[in-house]
Design a protein around this nucleic acid. Structure first.
Lengths: 131, 131
DNA sequence: ATACATGCAAATCATTTGCGCAGTC
DNA sequence: GACTGCGCAAATGATTTGCATGTAT
């Protein structure tokens, strides 16, 4: 017994590649559809299993914006998100971590802050243009 | 037909009261247990239906910290949260909205920012004390 | 050869919904 | 009395898991 994710598989390789090659933040379902084009018999179970393995390996990140559906992101360095409330697209924001924010709340936090999560919500330029 | 939430019910009143009287951010399950002590026959379905009605009325807020379970909060003005990674307790942080943060990313956001969400993660003082 | 990975189908788990009855206005 | 809300049980939808078989090392 060596552990999960120790042996390669065509399925996992493809799943990772799909995530690497998109700037959207897909759902497991969408990844499934993409992988299916190369490997028509992949099951959703395999997609989920591998998304978890890749997450555990730190190669991808699992996101959740409170719609009950997980999304996945191959950009693993800390970054923020901008969520369009109209089309639900999620975009990465290339900003350095604003860790000075911790100072603003340190006094009132009953404990030790390790990290934070910052998401912005609004309407993206695409949707603005459609008005 | 006047719409949902137009007629009062003992169940909804109690659900709201339970949320008002706790500083924790309970799950629907926990609310169910509490309400059950007064009304032993309430169903989980009723809890969910009313949590949605109260949310729609703006009397409570539905939260989600990415564990697949919703949590509810009777504090509806904008505020931040501190989540203890060890005991999963969620605490409100009494800080004014830091809307100047918008300025830091406005240039790089492809659209119009309307709001943001900021959560801090770490270890709460209770858990720190247990070491 | 051995342990990990897959496909499939069945199982979970939180949440939602349809329905007939009960409560509120 | 009309319409909303309830309890119950069945349905849903995303995700997980058991199992027999396939595959990488």
């Amino acid at each position: 017994m060596q552990g999960l994710g120790t042996k390669r598989s065509r399925q996992r390789d493809k799943i990772y590649q799909v995530l690497k090659c998109t700037t959207s933040h897909p759902t497991a379902e969408w990844v499934h559809e993409q992988v299916r084009e190369l490997l028509p018999r992949v099951s959703l179970g395999t997609i989920y299993r591998n998304l978890h393995i890749l997450t555990a390996q730190g190669k991808i990140r699992e996101l959740d914006f409170g719609e009950g559906i997980h999304r996945y992101d191959a950009t693993v360095d800390q970054h923020y998100h901008f969520v369009c409330e109209r089309c639900c697209t999620v975009r990465d924001l290339p900003v350095a971590p604003q860790n000075d924010i911790h100072d603003r709340v340190r006094d009132i936090v009953p404990g030790e802050i390790k990290s934070h999560r910052l998401d912005f919500f609004g309407v993206c330029s695409d949707c603005l243009a459609k008005n």
